[in-house]
Simulated scan of single mutants.
Amino acid sequence: MRDDDPQTIGAYTLVCRLGAGGMGQVYLAESPAGQQVAVKVIKPSVLDEDSRARFLPEVDNLKTVYEPFIASFVAADAQAERPWPAVEYVAGPDLPAFVTERGPLPLVETASLGALLAEGLGTVHEAGLLHHDLKPQNILLAPHGPKVIDFGLAVLAERRSVLTATGWVVGSVLCMPPEQARGEHHLSPVADVYALGAVLLYAATGHYPYTGPSRQAVALKIEDPDTPPGLSGLPPRLEPLISAMLALDPVARPALVEVTAELVQVMAEQGLTAVQAKRRLTDLTAGTAPAEPPVLPRTTGLPNGWTGYTPTVVDAACGVFIAPRIAERPTEERRVAEQGQTRYPPGAPLDCGRLGADGHAPLPP
């Protein structure tokens, strides 16, 4: 947390920053009863009265969605000075973090990921919602399967600034379908099908359908019928499906039920049921996620330069690890060895975001 961060949002106490994006800042927060949630505080720059009004029905629709692979909606306030939604906290890395650290997913695991996400998206579409910004960063790899996040924020991302003054689309262009890249407002569910195809291509290869030196260059490639998507490294068995999902013409893209059926067939050809393939996916990704939500360190000034440590766990989002340790008085040798310091003010706070090799927080100046 930073000095300018709020301490509370609604009834929730903010604990730490989880990340940030074009829409706003995301925090880990706790309810009065101890439930941990992810709260996204929307930037004032993306708000107007129209976007607030559009956000309300999105919230109402989100309340009706109960899908194991969609992060559950918890609460929201569209009328706050800075509107915010809160969803369940998902303990696990996003897809880019996993691919960067461990490499692309194998064929079966990619098929399982795609089938689970397609099924989850289908449920949300039935509730009258589209995602509009599906991308690897919005796929979290939870211990029991993937979770899609950031539903309900599309109406804020759409709002009055869909196009910049130069006419270019604002958004995550790397996974954006051509019709959205052109600035069309009335999208159909196959817009999410295109984005899911881009996500699966990334999961299996580590790259996107189109790349370029700028957002504008990528958008031009997406809209160009003479520039096919780059599928290098994609398992041949997935090429027909991913190509269809990335079709320039929305009518040519398969429905989500067709995507699910084809991916289940891929698993069957490898001698696995969908349940067995899902287990292989979660076994592969489980080692990257903490077993439970983090309990962040609470440090307070102790007399005579003593420091206190609270048990916590590794958390990919917060980047924090502190081993269980009782309060101890730092020695002169430790001060000199760690930071070359000779003074340690009594009661000075610790910086828990930077840790020494022994798991200690560094001493303040």
Rank of each mutant, 00 (worst) to 15 (best):
L56G: 05
A217S: 14
Y12A: 00
T123E: 13
N138T: 08
G19E: 07
A247C: 01
G319H: 11
A118R: 03
V124S: 04
L47C: 04
L200Q: 02
P57S: 11
Q341C: 07
A316I: 03
C352H: 14
V65T: 06
P44D: 10
T227R: 13
A252L: 05
C175E: 04
R279L: 11
L153Y: 15
Q276Y: 08
E338V: 14
P213I: 10
Q137S: 15
R215P: 12
K63I: 00
V259W: 00
I139Y: 08
V257G: 09
V170S: 12
A261T: 07
I326W: 14
P93M: 11
P178V: 01
G356S: 12
A198S: 12
P294R: 10
A29Q: 06
C318Y: 04
L28H: 02
A327S: 14
V39P: 04
W168C: 02
F73T: 09
V162R: 15
V320F: 10
E179V: 03
V170N: 07
R160W: 10
T205W: 12
S31Y: 06
S45E: 13
A78R: 03
G183W: 06
E332K: 12
E58D: 15
L163Q: 07
I326Q: 14
T110G: 08
A86I: 13
L121A: 00
A38G: 06
V251L: 01
D315T: 00
L134F: 11
P57Q: 12
D358G: 07
A277Y: 01
V275R: 14
G145H: 07
P362C: 05
V251Y: 02
P228L: 03
S232C: 02
L231W: 01
H185C: 00
K135A: 07
P6C: 02
Y89I: 01
A289Q: 14
Y344D: 11
P364S: 11
E179F: 05
W306P: 01
A203Q: 03
A71P: 09
T205I: 06
R334A: 12
G319L: 07
D94W: 12
V37I: 09
M1A: 11
P57Y: 15
L113H: 08
R160K: 08
E101L: 06
A71C: 11
E179R: 05
V193M: 02
R354A: 00
A154C: 05
Q35N: 07
A286P: 02
V169H: 04
D351A: 01
T211F: 14
P346I: 04
V39F: 13
V218E: 09
P254I: 10
G340V: 12
R82V: 00
V173S: 10
P209S: 09
V41Q: 13
L256Q: 10
Q36E: 09
V108R: 00
L200V: 03
G183I: 01
A361L: 12
T342A: 13
Q270H: 14
P362L: 15
L156I: 15
R334S: 08
L153W: 14
D50S: 14
P235R: 04
P177E: 07
P68N: 05
R52W: 11
V26K: 05
P250A: 00
P136A: 05
P229G: 12
G347Q: 04
D358Q: 08
V173A: 12
V90P: 01
S243F: 09
L200C: 01
P143W: 01
Y208C: 00
F321W: 15
Y208W: 07
R279F: 12
L95H: 08
D5L: 02
V314Y: 15
L200M: 09
V39E: 02
A289V: 12
D50Y: 15
A357T: 05
